[in-house]
Amino acid sequence: MQKLHLVMGGRVADPQGLEFTDLEKLDLVGVFDSYAEAEEAWRGRAQRTVDDAEMKYVIVHLHRLLQPELPKA
């Protein structure tokens, strides 16, 4: 099974939450077939905005959305 990971980021209403304030300005970094590649891309983007508390980058496990019945391992 292929495990896909989406890396994206944008401005959030609350730095502790995941409510993005402007969906048209989301930064869609890319889709990666390994968590390691996704983490490397996430880390690179997140480090650029480390001083901006309202910017947040996340890794979305697309394979869990596409096939939720599969084990999380």
Score class of each variant (00 low, 15 high):
Arg64Glu: 01
Asp14Thr: 06
Glu40Tyr: 12
Arg64Tyr: 02
Gly9Met: 09
His61Lys: 09
Val31Cys: 10
Ala38Phe: 06
Glu39Gln: 14
Gln47Phe: 11
Gly30His: 06
His61Val: 05
Thr49Trp: 09
Glu24Asp: 00
Trp42Met: 12
Gln2Asn: 15
Trp42Asn: 02
Met55Asn: 07
Ala41Lys: 13
Lys72Ala: 14
Ile59Asn: 01
Ala41Ser: 11
Tyr35Ala: 03
Glu39Cys: 13
Val29Pro: 00
Lys72Thr: 06
Lys3Trp: 00
Leu66Ala: 06
His63Ser: 08
Ala41Tyr: 00
Glu24Lys: 08
Gly17Ile: 01
Ala36Arg: 08
Val12Thr: 07
His63Phe: 08
Val58Lys: 09
Lys56Cys: 04
Val31Gln: 10
Glu37Ile: 05
Gly9Pro: 01
Leu66Trp: 12
Arg48Glu: 10
Ala41Phe: 03
Leu66Gly: 03
Leu26Tyr: 06
Gly17Lys: 10
Ala73Gln: 14
Asp27Thr: 06
Lys25Pro: 03
Val12Ser: 05
Glu19Ser: 15
Leu66Met: 07
Leu66Lys: 13
Leu28Thr: 11
Arg64Gly: 05
Phe20Trp: 04
Ala41Asp: 05
Val58Ile: 15
Leu66Phe: 15
Thr49His: 14
Arg48Asp: 02
His63Val: 00
Leu4Val: 02
Val58Arg: 14
His5Leu: 08
Gly10Lys: 02
Val29Ala: 06
Gly9Cys: 00
Leu66Ser: 12
Lys25Asn: 05
Phe20Met: 11
Ala46Ser: 01
Lys25Leu: 00
Asp27Ser: 06
Leu6Pro: 05
His61Met: 10
Thr21Asp: 04
Glu40Ser: 15
His5Tyr: 15
Phe32Ile: 01
Gln47Cys: 09
Leu66Glu: 13
Val58His: 12
Arg43Gly: 03
Pro71Ala: 11
Phe32Tyr: 05
Pro71Thr: 07
Leu62Ala: 04
Arg11Val: 10
His5Cys: 02
Ala41Pro: 08
Thr49Val: 00
Gln16Phe: 09
Met55Phe: 08
Asp51Ala: 14
Met1Glu: 08
Gly17Ala: 04
Thr49Ile: 11
Glu19Val: 11
Asp52Val: 03
Tyr57Asn: 05
Gln2Pro: 15
Asp27Gln: 10
Ala36Ile: 11
Asp22Ser: 13
Ala36Asp: 04
Pro68Thr: 00
Ala36His: 10
Gln2Trp: 01
Asp51Arg: 13
Arg64Asp: 13
Gln47Ile: 08
Lys3Gln: 04
Phe20Tyr: 11
Pro68Ser: 07
Ala53Lys: 12
Val7Thr: 00
Pro68Glu: 01
Lys56Phe: 01
Pro71Trp: 11
Val29Cys: 03
Thr49Ser: 10
Gln47Asp: 07
His61Tyr: 03
Leu23Gly: 11
Ala38Ser: 07
Lys25Gln: 02
Gln67Gly: 07
Val31Pro: 13
Thr49Arg: 08
Glu19Thr: 14
Phe32Glu: 05
Leu6Val: 01
Thr21Tyr: 03
Pro15His: 02
